[in-house]
Design a protein around this nucleic acid. Structure first.
Lengths: 139, 139
DNA sequence: ATGTATGCAAAACATTTGCACCTGG
DNA sequence: CCAGGTGCAAATGTTTTGCATACAT
């Protein structure tokens, strides 16, 4: 049980929080929207309010447990913060998300930021494209 | 007058469209939201509806005249598409935006996408950070 | 107990759409 | 003239908030 993680983040270990954390853990490869999490919980027979999902996800983000992405398409998606930064490739057709990291890119980013007098906090690199060989509906 | 540009994009050269284009040109260094454009036009004494601004910006995006960004914070911002791709650095404190390009990063992005069986359409690299020497309110 | 968290419904935003009227070519 | 564009208001979709109730410690 992750009560510890929550406590450490200064959050009471309530049932809704534990459940949301559990959904995120179970789908760590996916990137879920608040509604996705909500539906997953309902389907699992759990009772929860959508507002709670939003509140908890926002708190998790503030606590550094979760990362919020603003990919194309209005809604935010969330993933557990593994601690290791990574970038994303999003298929514009099937919405599948791949993750990657590249040391060379990271290094250049730091240098560029410094050149512009910036101290980088977070950064997000998202490649939008089209699958050519995966299970993408369009091949 | 940019009637030509519009015509070329298959769009009638109407007054609202010309005005919006003009606002974007005048603020090419900024990244404006639909509401920003709307307000700018109202302040300039022009009559226009917010819905029209949204419609026109979306059409411009489709026509490749404009690029839409989903930076942090729910709303979309727009900038004229200069034709030359570039990345962004956004100050989390003063919201100032700097642009840059880096050939090495671009090259690696292509390679990485290819490795994952992706054909890249668009991509967006945004560094979120803090100014250290510009006119940022927090220095 | 008691301060916090939750659920529900209502509110707040950003954006889109239906429709009658206006306009550019 | 006529297809397409615009304005307004209403609809949508997402996220936030107020408030009375329920829960963790």
């Amino acid at each position: 049980m992750d009560s510890g993680e929550l406590r450490k983040a200064g959050l009471k270990a309530t049932l809704p929080r534990l459940r949301i954390l559990s959904i995120l853990e179970k789908n760590n490869d996916l990137h879920l929207s608040a509604e996705d999490v909500y539906k997953a919980l309902l389907e699992a027979g759990e009772e929860i309010g959508l507002a709670t999902v939003y509140r908890v996800l926002t708190q998790f983000e503030g606590a550094g447990l979760v990362i919020r992405h603003n990919f194309e398409g209005g809604r935010s998606v969330f993933e557990l913060d593994s601690g290791e930064h990574h970038d994303h490739i999003v298929c514009l057709e099937c919405s599948k998300v791949f993750e990657f990291t590249d040391a060379a890119i990271e290094a250049r980013q730091q240098r560029i930021a410094a050149q512009h007098g910036f101290r980088i906090g977070e950064h997000s690199l998202v490649l939008y494209g089209h699958c050519t060989k995966t299970a993408c509906p369009n091949r």
